[in-house]
Design a protein around this nucleic acid. Structure first.
Length: 821
DNA sequence: AGCACGCCGACT
DNA sequence: GTCGGCGTGCTC
């Protein structure tokens, strides 16, 4: 096999820093051998020796300083040819790694299209001797079981351990190797995503004398001359025997056969080009104001436009202006379902130069869109939060639509907020950033107040449509009612009746899916909880099952109470499923549809519902917060908010903000077409300021009250937060580690003067104390400034916390947490 | 992550 | 006395 250690010290033409795709926090330095020096660039994906195996990494810098060359290992290969990101993005990756306290290599890895990572892996196979040993009597159970696993084919150590269990240790494997029962073979694994290469045929001379050819050859050439280069597959559809024919035609010099890269097409149907419409005066002013800054350095604008004020058209005009100055444009929307709407507008206006980036694409499609951007074939990218890493080099405009939306926060290993990163990237590229929303986040509005961002307002709806009337109805008045009537006020039913009679559509919003959201044993009175999460389950009628909304666990609805064995389970509370069911009984003739995570899980299901709505094949749409997100419903004139309070009672300092945004957004769905809309808002808290502000569509009033509350309690935007999460399978160990981290935090605060301003809250058991068998504790760090907070968290995680950490308890950080549950 | 090294308990 | 468990540390 290859020897990695003994490369000649001399002969390295260049020295590079490589960020490897592992949880390590430093870049490593390698020498570039002469045969690779031409192809290595910043952004190259390289294969490098690391300890005793080969793994992939990314070149983040060339080294010029003196480095003892003899100690360097050599880059083994350059993968995938061209670089995967421009050099200008390295500072961005570094910023992200630093700010979110995450390994640089992992940041890059997470940013790039998936399926690229390569590492050397050893897989073990059974030898003849091992086959014999397996059958011998008196073998240990581990050996017997493990060797049997290998009869199915070679496995890695990890795979073996997974199937056999914890008794399968490295020592056992070593014994097999030394006694010759098994042997290892090392190979490069992963990295299966490749450009799609297709055999294409090109006609060689357009003016060939066709009469001398056979009729079939003549036909092929005719098609080719008309269509230009064509994939062989397409030609075969017209002429089934084309494969053989073109080969001989190539020999005769009539056509050329070659492998060409074909971009996988994630776009649906083609879209007819449109013309920019005339802007309203307000839109025109907004565009003029922001356009003046394009190409003149960084500036962030908060575009606060009421629902229906034509923000998209402002985006399109800004994008056109940026493209005209040869600047690239990045457009972010909160979720995949909204990408297609915006993407259609952009493609209609700008055509082929639009790329699409979101996690719904296949790895191959993503890689292709990525390449189109790097090669400059696409100068506009539309996508969900991960598109913030699009490999643009001359970014001039970043648009974040519905910037208040929590979906911009990525949960998982690297917890970033794409909206915040848009501002960072904009600053690094000297670009204009537009944060657009009808209900901007408190954070962004605060930033306009302190002069960090500039505000731009769109207060008029296009075509002078008026905002809908919002009527608040107190649900406590319904306490005497039973069943559905408890949540359907006479006013709502009356309004629905009238709306349907006029042939218009009704939207009913209830932020809770399923049929019954509360399951209680009729015998012993205990709530039915998920085994793995310690959270109340929800009854789903469609699936006839009890489901856990946190881990997905599902059990048949015939199950008995785990506590007393009774089979009588009371189904209380209401979700969208029960609401849709019930409303149908009130309006038997109406066509009722439901839109929530259960009905749109299949690909394209949501578009189908939206299309039926537009085609007026639906009279009443029942939905969760999904219906509140940016969709256009031209024929909906009545919006019923069934219970405005569901998000109000959550133990989260942002509950009020979230509720206001949700209510205002849902209300804004009414009357977007020609007709005026009305909203009926039902609530148990009619006097709550979030409800009041939503009713009056009064953002300023909401802001005034909410900002007071944040200031009084010293919450963001007046402070910064880092949440430390401690979780693991062993309840006691998690609690113990959490306690020790808390103690450590207080010691740290006492010992270092710089940490005086850092407030340590907790450790506390998380509000959702157990999810998917993981027990959870948390520690909240709060400070007016981010710097001490960062240093503090690093200290906790690396310097001292590292000693506290146990193998089976993990500690992770969430910088600027959005969900505190 | 993955792999080696090194330190303690239960067995031939 | 060794075998083998897992905590600790390093990888250019």
């Amino acid at each position: 096999m290859t020897d990695f250690g003994g490369q000649p010290a001399a002969g390295f033409t260049r020295i590079v820093d490589v960020a490897v795709a592992l949880p390590v926090y430093t870049a490593y330095t390698y020498g570039v051998p002469p045969d690779l020096s031409e192809v290595v660039a910043v952004g190259s994906r390289v294969l490098v020796p690391f300890r005793s195996r080969l793994i992939s990494g990314y070149v983040v810098a060339f080294r010029t300083g003196a480095q003892p060359e003899s100690e360097l290992k050599a880059v083994a290969d350059v993968l995938g040819g061209a670089p995967f990101f421009p050099e200008t993005m390295v500072p961005f990756f570094r910023w992200v790694a630093d700010y979110y306290i995450h390994p640089l290599g992992a940041v890059i890895q997470g940013a790039l299209p998936g399926g690229l990572t390569i590492a050397e892996q050893t897989r073990y196979h059974l030898t003849d001797r091992g086959r014999a040993a397996r059958l011998e009597a008196g073998q240990r159970p581990v050996d017997k079981e493990g060797l049997t696993c290998l009869t199915q084919g070679p496995l890695t150590y990890k795979q073996l351990q997974k199937t056999v269990g914890s008794s399968m240790t490295r020592a056992v494997l070593k014994r097999w190797l030394s006694s010759g029962w098994a042997a290892g073979q090392t190979a490069l694994m992963g990295g299966r995503t490749r450009p799609r290469m297709v055999r294409c045929i090109t006609p060689l001379a357009a003016d060939q004398d066709l009469s001398a050819l056979s009729p079939q050859r003549r036909e092929i050439l005719k098609i080719l001359v008309r269509r230009g280069t064509l994939p062989l597959k397409d030609l075969k559809q017209k002429i089934p025997t084309a494969a053989g024919l073109v080969r001989s035609m190539a020999r005769d010099g009539q056509v050329r056969l070659e492998e060409q890269r074909l971009y996988r097409d994630p776009f649906g149907e083609t879209i007819a080009p449109d013309q920019p419409p005339e802007l309203m005066p307000q839109q025109q002013q907004a565009v003029e104001k922001m356009r003046a800054d394009l190409g003149r350095g960084y500036q962030t604008y908060v575009l606060a436009g009421v629902t229906g004020s034509g923000k998209t058209e402002v985006y399109l005009h800004m994008a056109a202006a940026a493209l005209k100055s040869n600047l690239q444009v990045l457009v972010l929307v909160p979720e995949i379902a909204l990408v297609s709407q915006i993407e259609r507008s952009f493609r209609a206006r700008f055509g082929e130069c639009v790329a699409l980036l979101h996690s719904g694409l296949s790895p191959g499609e993503r890689l292709d869109q990525w390449r189109r951007i790097i090669q400059g074939d696409a100068s506009v990218a539309v996508g969900a939060r991960s598109a913030i890493f699009a490999p643009f080099d001359h970014l001039g405009l970043v648009i974040v639509d519905e910037e208040h939306d929590d979906s911009y926060k990525q949960e998982g290993a690297l917890r970033y907020n794409a909206r915040d990163l848009a501002v960072v990237r904009g600053r690094q590229h000297g670009a204009v950033v537009i944060l657009g929303s009808a209900t901007p986040s408190l954070q962004s509005v605060y930033n306009t107040q302190i002069g960090k961002f500039k505000p731009v307002y769109l207060s008029e709806r296009v075509d002078h449509r008026v905002l809908p009337d919002v009527h608040v109805h107190d649900l406590t008045q319904q306490n005497e009612e039973r069943g559905l009537r408890r949540f359907l006020t006479p006013a709502l039913l009356e309004a629905a009746k009238e709306t349907l009679a006029r042939g218009e559509q009704v939207l009913l919003f209830l932020n809770r899916r399923g049929f019954s959201s509360s399951l209680v044993c009729a015998h012993c009175g205990r709530p039915l909880r998920c085994d793995r999460c310690d959270i109340s389950m929800t009854y789903h009628q469609g699936a006839n099952a009890y489901q856990c909304h946190y881990c997905g666990f599902s059990r048949a609805a015939v199950s008995t109470c785990p506590n007393c064995g009774s089979s009588k389970i009371k189904r209380l509370g209401m979700g969208t499923e029960k609401l849709a069911d019930g409303i149908q009984q009130f309006f038997p003739a109406a066509r009722v549809a439901r839109m929530d995570r259960d009905t749109v899980s299949r690909k394209g299901a949501m578009l189908k519902i939206l299309k039926s709505l537009r085609d007026r094949k639906i009279d009443i749409l029942v939905g969760t917060q999904m219906v509140a997100k940016g969709h256009d419903y031209p024929y909906i004139t009545l919006v019923g908010i069934i219970c405005a309070d569901l998000s109000l009672s959550l133990p989260d300092f942002r509950a009020g903000e979230r509720t206001f945004q949700l209510l205002a957004q849902v209300a804004g769905r009414a009357g977007r077409g020609q007709r005026c809309g009305q909203v009926i808002l039902q609530t148990f808290n009619p006097d709550h300021f979030s409800v009041q502000a939503a009713r009056n569509q009064d953002y300023a009033e909401f802001y005034r009250q909410e900002i007071e509350f944040r200031k009084a309690l010293q919450y963001p935007p007046f402070t910064r937060l880092i949440q430390v999460r401690i979780h693991g399978r062993d309840k006691d160990k998690v609690a113990q580690v959490a306690g020790r981290l808390g103690q450590l935090s207080r010691d740290l605060k006492k010992d270092e003067k710089g940490f005086a301003a850092v407030q340590v809250m907790g450790p506390l058991e998380a509000p959702l104390a157990k999810i998917a068998n993981q027990y959870r504790w948390q520690l909240l760090l709060k400070c007016p400034h981010i710097n001490p907070l960062h240093r503090f968290a690093r200290h906790l995680l690396f310097a001292d916390g590292a000693r506290i950490k146990r193998g089976d308890v993990s500690i992770s950080l969430d910088v600027d947490p959005v969900f505190l549950m």
